[in-house]
Design a binder for these strands. Structure first.
Lengths: 241, 241
DNA sequence: CACCCGAGATGATCTGGATCAAAGCAGGTA
DNA sequence: TACCTGCTTTGATCCAGATCATCTCGGGTG
C-alpha cells in the first residue's frame, strides 16, 4: 500500500465525522466548539467481547460514549448474583451513575467487539461552562436515562412474562430504527439468559416465549437473528397486559 | 396579635435558614450565591394530601425540592394501571425526568400535607453557568437518582417478596436517618397498596409479610407506625436472597 | 473429522405469590 | 352514637413461571 498522505484538516474534528455524533451530542455546536470537545475526548482501542469497560467500585473519572458494538450494564448483588440493568447501543452514554460517588456503581461489559470514546468528566464539566448548550445537553441525556429507568421499573413490576419480552423487543426495535437500522430485523448481541435476567425471568421462560411467539407468527428467531413480523400485535400484548 | 415587625435581612436567604437546605443544595455557596438561588425559587403554598404536584404529560418548566411531607411518583400504564416508581422525602428533588422531553414523564402526588420549593429550570440552568459548583451539584443529584433507580430495578427483578419488603424498609430507615430522624422508628405515609405496587407484589402479600416479620420479632407495625427491632436480620434477608 | 462445550429448547413437576372471598378495624360524618 | 367507607388482615385456592432434568444444536479445536 502507498503511504497515506494525512490531511491535517480531516484529522481534526473526528467527532464531526463520527457516524453517531448526532446521537451522543445532538446539538448545534459551532466548528470551534466541536474541536474543543474533540480535544478532551480520548479514543480507546476496541474492546473485545467479554472485556469490561469498567467495574462497579472502580474510581470514576470518565463517562463513555459507545461508538460501535454493544455493552451490557449490570449490578452485582451481595450474594454474587448478577442483575442486568440494560443494554447500550452506539450513541449511548455509559457511566453516568458514577458521577455522584466518585466510583462507578455498575459494571459494563462488551457483548461484542465494541469501541468507545472516553470523555474525562471533569474536563467535560469545564467545557459545559464554556460551550453554550452543552450543559443542557448533558442534563437532557441524564434526564432521559432516568426516564428510561423508570419505564424499566414499571415493566418489571407487574407485566406478565409475555408482555415483558414483547416490550424489550419493541424497545430494541425502536432503538435500532432510531440509529438508522431496520426496525424489524436485527441481531441480538446478548444471550437469552441476559435477556431473562434483565426481565427478571428464567431462561427457560424466554426460550419458550420465543417459540410461542414464532408459533403465533409474531416473529421469527433463528439463534440471535430476529425478524419482527407483527409489531402491531406485539404492542397490543404490552398494552393489554 | 400584634403586627409582626419584618426584619428584611431575615426574609432574605430563606434557603439558608431552611432545615433541609443542606440536603437539596449541599454545596458551599457564598452568601451572595445563595441569595441568587433564593431569588429564582418560588415558594408554593402547602400541597394537600392527594393533590398532584404535577402530572405526566404536563409541560415541564420547573423541578421541585420537597421541603416537608412526602410525595409518591408514578407512571400510568396504557391500560390505566398505576405503577409506583418511588417515594420522595424532604430534600429530594422531583421532576428531573422531564428535562429531556419538555413534559413531565411521571406524576407526583402528595401522600400527606407537603410543601415544595419550585425551581424554574431554565433559570436554574443559567445560574449553573454563573455559580461554580452548582452545575456539578445538579449533575450529582441526577446521577444519584440514576443509581437509585438501578437499585430498584435490581430489587424488583429477582428478589423474593420477603427481601423486597425488607429492602424498602431498610432504604426508608436509611433515608430517615440521613435526615436526622430515627432510623428505627418512623411513620409510613404511604398505604400498604402503594408499597405493594412499588415492589411489584400484591397488597395481601405485604400484609402477610408484615405479620410474619412481627412474629419473627423483626419489627412492630401498628398501622402506619413502624419500629424496626432487628435491622441486622433484616439486612441478612436482603443479602441472602 | 470427530470431539467437546456452552447456549438453547423442551418436557415434567413444584411453588411463591396472585387471586378470590370475607371479615376486622379505624377514622370520618351525620 | 351509630353508621359508613376505605384500608388492612386473614384464609382458601389457583396458576404463571421457577426449577429440575434432558436433549439438541452449532461453532470452535486438536
Amino acid at each position: 500500500m502507498a503511504s497515506t498522505v494525512i490531511d491535517l484538516a480531516s484529522v481534526r474534528s473526528i467527532c464531526q465525522q463520527c457516524g453517531i455524533y448526532n446521537l451522543c451530542m445532538p446539538i448545534g455546536l459551532e466548528r470551534g466548539d466541536i474541536d474543543q470537545l474533540d480535544e478532551i475526548i480520548k479514543r480507546r482501542r476496541p474492546i473485545a467481547k467479554g472485556e469490561h469497560l469498567y467495574r462497579a467500585g472502580e474510581d470514576f473519572s470518565s463517562i463513555y460514549a459507545l461508538r460501535s458494538g454493544s455493552v451490557k450494564t449490570y449490578l452485582n448483588h451481595v450474594s454474587g448474583v448478577e442483575h442486568v440493568i440494560g443494554f447500550k447501543l452506539p450513541g449511548d452514554l455509559l457511566g453516568l451513575s458514577g458521577i455522584s460517588g466518585s466510583h462507578y456503581t455498575n459494571s459494563a461489559i462488551a457483548l461484542e467487539t465494541s469501541s468507545v470514546c472516553e470523555i474525562p468528566f471533569t474536563q467535560l464539566e469545564d467545557l459545559c461552562q464554556e460551550i453554550h448548550g452543552l450543559q443542557h445537553h448533558i442534563m437532557e441525556i441524564m434526564s432521559r436515562e432516568i426516564q428510561e429507568d423508570h419505564e424499566k421499573i414499571a415493566v418489571c413490576h407487574k407485566l406478565p412474562a409475555e408482555a415483558r419480552l414483547a416490550s424489550i423487543l419493541l424497545t430494541l426495535s425502536d432503538r435500532f430504527h432510531h440509529r438508522g437500522y431496520s426496525a424489524t430485523e436485527f441481531n441480538l448481541s446478548m444471550s437469552r439468559s441476559d435477556i431473562a435476567n434483565m426481565l427478571g425471568l428464567a431462561v427457560e421462560t424466554i426460550s419458550r416465549l420465543f417459540t410461542h411467539f414464532e408459533e403465533e407468527g409474531l416473529l421469527t428467531a433463528d439463534r440471535k437473528h430476529i425478524k419482527l413480523l407483527d409489531i402491531k400485535r406485539l404492542s397490543e400484548i404490552v398494552q393489554t397486559a
